[in-house]
């Protein structure tokens, strides 16, 4: 335990070392985060009127970003599946990046939901012993569970693998392989549950459509690996860590297949909605 805390402390120290470009980048991110914190402070005091939302459009960019980032997090599984199910050796080198990315975006997801709350001071109401959790009735409560669960899973897997690497020893399979397989299902579930968040609303005909979860997953499996490829390229250029072409080629193939499925689903959806002008698509017309 102590060793693990030392490990975390050393990571923290490590995060302060870097060249000038690294400092510039981190500084820029800090400035962005501080501006965001300032905006949020204003919003907290003045209410959500600062967002420009109205009763007519009550959800906006916060929820859109949340949904997108859930997709990116779910897409991390696209690195895990080839690495652990198909035993592609070259993916083992980069699978960690996928998991770290998942952690980062899940944290962003949770933050996006938090800033979207009208009363963030009452977030305890969502946490079972203190509040009243509407489970399993509310899909939002499912989302709270799956997102936090996914966060914990990835923290465990990535933390354990990094810790073993730090100690220069081989990870014990029993400690992380079950969680890896769990995380594969879990990743699918986070995006499915998020899709159900919308699909469950019968009063919104354009969302109330059985293809939405499938499309969410298909598009996430395009966007997520796409983002990973970009990240890999930056890592290759900017850092000493070497990533071969093989993982990128694998990801490219995954993207191609997922994109085909996504386009097919999109086409079916558009056809259903627009071939005949029913009320179902009235809001889209």
């Amino acid at each position: 335990m102590r060793a693990y805390l030392t490990f975390i402390w050393r990571i923290w120290l490590l995060s302060w070392t870097g060249n000038r470009r690294y400092y510039a980048w981190m500084g820029l991110l800090t400035v962005v985060a501080v501006i965001g914190a300032n905006a949020w402070a204003h919003q907290f005091v003045e209410g959500l009127q600062t967002t420009g939302l109205t009763n007519q459009v009550s959800w906006g960019a916060y929820i859109a970003n949340f949904t997108f980032l859930v997709g990116v997090a779910a897409a991390a599984v696209m690195l895990v599946i080839p690495a652990y199910i198909y035993k592609k050796e070259h993916m083992h080198e980069v699978v960690l990046f996928g998991e770290l990315m998942a952690i980062a975006v899940i944290v962003m997801c949770l933050l996006f939901v938090t800033v979207d709350l009208g009363r963030p001071d009452r977030f305890l109401h969502m946490i079972p012993p203190f509040g009243v959790f509407n489970f399993p009735g509310s899909i939002l409560s499912w989302d709270v569970i799956v997102l936090n669960g996914y966060l914990l899973l990835n923290l465990h897997i990535a933390g354990y693998l990094l810790y073993c690497r730090y100690h220069q020893r081989k990870p014990t399979k029993r400690f992380y392989i079950p969680f890896v397989f769990l995380s594969i299902f879990w990743a699918v579930s986070i995006h499915t549950v998020t899709a159900f968040l919308y699909v469950g609303l019968a009063g919104r005909p354009f969302w109330h459509h059985p293809l939405v979860p499938a499309r969410f997953l298909a598009s996430a499996f395009v966007a997520g690996p796409g983002l990973m490829i970009l990240a890999f390229q930056i890592i290759r250029k900017a850092m000493r860590f070497h990533i071969g072409d093989a993982p990128i080629v694998t990801l490219r193939m995954i993207m191609t297949v997922a994109m085909l499925i996504n386009m097919f689903l999109l086409g079916s959806e558009l056809f259903t909605e627009f071939y005949y002008p029913t009320q179902h698509a009235a809001s889209a017309h």
């Binding site: 209410g47 959500l48 009763n55 009550s58 009208g118 009452r122 009063g203």
Partner: peptide
């Protein structure tokens, strides 16, 4: 005194019957 202001109910209502206090 219990609502957390997530506005999911507004999204769920087919009749636009719910209002959110964007300000005091």
């Amino acid at each position: 005194n219990w609502c957390i202001g997530c506005r999911y109910c507004m999204a769920a209502c087919p009749y636009d019957a719910r209002r959110f206090n964007y300000k005091k």
